[in-house]
Design a protein around this nucleic acid. Structure first.
Length: 110
DNA sequence: ACTGTGACGAGGG
DNA sequence: GCCCTCGCCACAG
């Protein structure tokens, strides 16, 4: 823990910077980390973030704005509910007006 | 050390 | 423009 040299830790660090009501994609995080081709790893990293309460994994979706990871949230619509509580509308597992809510770490953190 | 894996993404049919 | 296939690479067993 506290080992920022780990890829997973870097992913968590970026996730913590995602503002409320904003969302980003696995690929965007991967790209920011300089590993654009490791988008799948980002998703897998979130799998290990279950214990971490300070990592808003619900704000990370795929490039289409679809809540692909909602099945890993335990509840059937837990992820969607978390997003809507932040003001992000979700229609049929897809974020409404995705581009408006999109938060690009490359633009915001670079 | 080797293999499988996976909450993705891009390209081709 | 949708559907299928392939590539991708860090991590767990």
């Amino acid at each position: 823990m506290g080992d920022n040299s780990n890829f997973f830790e870097r992913v968590y660090d970026v996730c913590r910077e995602i503002p409320e009501g904003r969302v980003t994609s696995y690929g965007a995080i991967a790209k920011f980390l300089g590993a654009a081709r490791s988008a799948r790893m980002v998703g897998w990293a979130m799998n290990s973030s279950h214990n971490m309460e300070d990592v808003p994994a619900h704000r990370v979706v795929n490039r289409n704005g679809v809540l692909t990871g909602k099945h890993h949230f335990g509840g059937t619509n837990a992820m969607q509910q978390l997003l809507e509580e932040e003001g992000v509308k979700v229609k049929d597992l897809k974020i409404v007006n995705f581009s408006a809510h999109f938060w690009d770490p490359v633009k915001e953190l670079s």
